[in-house]
Nucleic acid binder design. Structure first.
Length: 423
RNA sequence: GCGCCGGUCGUAUAGUGGCAAUUACACGACGCUGUAAACGUCGCGACCUUUUGGUCUUCGUUGGUUCGAGUCCAACCCGGCGCA
């Protein structure tokens, strides 16, 4: 893997670059669609590529449970298994320590609403808290109860690396512990030392294997909301010879910006940075401006499946009654397949010359049609909504990248945010 | 004509003396940020209220029994089945 910065954004941490992997180039900053179980839900890899995605992110924990990393290895690795030829990133399973652990059954999420994360997790200090959860954390690793069949599994940093080696992604992540900002200060400290110890163990295991030459390993900065902890974490993680870095954890919007800037000021400039799990439009501008190169997020795909669609004016819930008879496209002027339904000239195999895939110009799909598909529970609803949302987000980051190259990032940001209501 | 069964929120249902009344679907709104997620939460008779509330009107119709009736009784209307 090789990373080259093409252009820097003046008076900020932002930059545009190219990340070369053995499965192709990634032009950064970029948005990485999430393909947790080796599938971007509702889309084929060809569709994902046509949307402009250059890389996808799959998950270690999920693929370990189903179908099993050894089976993926037998299939010839993730690329072959899922028939995606481009670069792949795998997450380490660290986030599941959080989502199946402290956050299990609760409404904690990565981005906390409001400003005061005052509610602490009271039962956290006691081992026998009685609260249902599927993950329990020890210093050596984490025991998980499978959310699929309830079987017990134990994942250590070494195990996470082994699984990720079997999966064979281009970029893999160190095993970490994501914490909720609701945790106590003492707990955050404990978790941070664990994440640091696990980072070192992940790295040592990785470097002892031949995979170190074919797979890049990213370390993950944690540290919660405390500036000092974040700083400490960024300093420690960047002192280790990782190929790149992830920024993890969960925070309020306000802290997200402070944290991103603080961390990226410390991380070495010449290595790529991935802001884990972030991807609302306003957050993408924030991240890029503060030195982030890669974003992944389930928001465009999940929101799409649940009926929330992105437009330049903000998100709309397409299932709402007001759209039942609305014959406009989702977003006027959007260049995606759903909105424009352009006559495309893709040649079909065996045919001579370009063959239009669409006959005539129907003008694309309407809001009314999408609304109908959702109410009718048609599978096409998910496909079209995901197509539009992913295009919207991927294209937004592409435009942000271009604005850096064109020296008009700040103008573009202002113009976009002026119209966009984050809600 | 006789007998039996049945008529409850848009639909299908639960309910056999304390009920504005169960559940599902539909409908309406909201939420979703390294995917436990084609999911979840809330609302769904009307009006009022700051509240854990208050008032009114509802289970085919009309009457009755009862402190109290969707629930018991009577008649009637409608539907299904059976016998003529």
């Amino acid at each position: 893997m090789h990373f080259k910065i093409e252009k820097k954004l003046e008076n900020s941490l932002g930059r545009a670059g190219v990340l070369k992997t053995s499965h192709g180039e990634i032009h950064t900053p970029t948005f990485v669609p999430v393909a947790t179980k080796a599938s971007v839900k509702a889309l084929t890899p060809l569709q994902v590529a046509e949307l402009g995605a250059e890389v996808v992110l799959a998950n270690t924990y999920h693929l370990y449970l189903q179908p099993g990393d050894e089976l993926v290895a037998r299939a010839g690795g993730l690329h072959k298994f899922m028939n995606w030829e481009g670069p792949i990133i795998t997450d380490s399973g660290g986030f599941q320590v959080f989502s199946l652990g402290a956050a299990y059954g609760k409404d904690f999420s990565k981005v906390i609403r409001g400003t005061e994360p005052a509610i602490q997790i009271p039962e956290r200090s006691s081992a026998e808290d009685g609260a249902p959860r599927l993950a329990n954390i020890g210093n050596d690793g984490v025991s998980f109860r499978s959310h699929i069949d309830g079987t017990l599994h134990y994942i250590t940093p070494e195990k996470s690396m082994e699984i990720q080696h079997n999966l064979g992604a281009d970029i893999i992540f160190a095993f970490d512990e994501a914490t909720s900002p609701h945790e106590s200060y003492e707990y955050q400290n404990e978790a941070l030392s664990r994440t640091h110890a696990w980072a070192k163990r992940s790295l040592e295991y990785h470097q002892s294997k031949p995979n170190k030459d074919t797979q890049a390993l990213f370390g993950i900065v944690q540290g919660g909301l405390e500036k000092d902890s974040r700083k400490k974490s960024a300093e420690y993680i960047s002192s280790l010879p990782f190929d790149g870095f992830g920024i993890g954890g969960s925070y309020t919007k306000e802290h997200m910006e402070l944290t991103t800037r603080l961390v990226n000021e410390i991380l070495p400039e010449d290595k790529p940075r991935h802001l884990l799990g972030i991807g609302e439009p306003e957050d993408l501008f924030m991240g890029v401006e503060n030195g982030v190169d890669l974003f992944d997020c389930v928001a465009p795909t999940r929101n799409g499946r649940n009926g929330t669609l992105y437009t330049k004016n903000g998100k709309i819930n397409i299932t709402n009654a007001q759209y039942r008879g609305d014959f406009q496209p989702i977003e006027d002027g959007c260049g995606c397949y759903v909105c424009n339904n352009p006559s495309r000239d893709l040649p079909l195999s065996g045919e001579e010359g370009p063959v239009p895939l669409t006959r005539g110009t129907t003008g694309g799909f309407t809001r009314a049609y999408l609304c109908h598909l959702f109410h009718g529970k048609e599978m096409l609803a998910a496909t079209l909504a995901t197509t539009h949302n992913l295009y919207f987000i991927i294209n937004l980051v592409k435009k942000i990248r271009q604005s850096i190259l064109d020296d008009n990032f700040f103008e573009f940001k202002e113009e976009f945010l002026k119209n966009y209501n984050p809600k």
